[in-house]
């Protein structure tokens, strides 16, 4: 089992947390994982991205030039990473913020209206969890239940309301794939 994922979007969209949850869930399932953020001045208000590797084998390079999966939360991210996705890979697109079509015809595309669903749930900030839910359901790289556990361990006690909202958002994202 191997997935190499790049997650990209605006700073503030919760990009790094999405990656951390996949890595954390993978760890809880006993898999090998690595998480690598972009860092630097571009993070302040600009674009943010991170790479996650989740594998049944030991992780070699933590740097991934050609990811198997891409979660693009905004247009600049799609423009930057679409050409790099491995042939036969998957692109999860935040349809709420990206109106253009995908140029590639050799990858699978999943369109998720992440911001619209988050707005329906009453909090735009969980758009990241909607997209993450779709990714988890599509890739099956980790179980949704484990992501819930990772979420609880990451946010901790006293955040029950936020955890519930995030779980709801994850489930809505999952529903787009499994119906």
């Amino acid at each position: 089992m191997l997935d190499e994922i790049i997650i990209a979007g605006f700073g503030g969209q919760g990009i790094l947390l999405m990656g951390r949850l996949i890595a954390h869930a993978g760890m809880l399932e006993g898999k090998h994982v690595a998480w690598m953020p972009s860092y630097g001045p571009e993070m302040r208000g600009g674009t943010a991205n991170c790479t996650v590797i989740i594998s049944s084998e030991e992780v070699a390079s933590p740097v991934v030039p050609n990811p198997l999966s891409l979660i693009a939360m905004n247009l600049p991210s799609l423009d930057k990473f679409e050409p790099l996705v491995e042939k036969g890979g998957t692109i999860i697109v935040n349809q709420s913020l990206i109106s253009r079509n995908i140029y590639r015809d050799d990858v699978e595309v999943v369109k998720v209206p992440a911001n619209d669903i988050a707005n329906e749930l009453g909090n735009l900030r969980v758009a990241n969890m909607v997209a993450l839910g779709s990714y988890i359901a599509k890739s099956k790289s980790v179980k949704m239940q484990t992501v819930f556990e990772a979420l609880e361990q990451t946010l901790g006690k006293g955040s029950e309301k936020i955890i519930e909202l995030n779980k709801e958002a994850l489930k809505r994202g999952e529903k787009i794939i499994i119906g």
């Binding site: 951390r20 890595a23 760890m27 090998h32 994982v33 690595a34 998480w35 690598m36 953020p37 860092y39 992780v59 933590p62 740097v63």
Partner: peptide
């Protein structure tokens, strides 16, 4: 290096 310092692993 910056890569090792910034990355997360179990």
């Amino acid at each position: 290096d910056g890569l090792l310092g910034q990355m997360m692993e179990p």
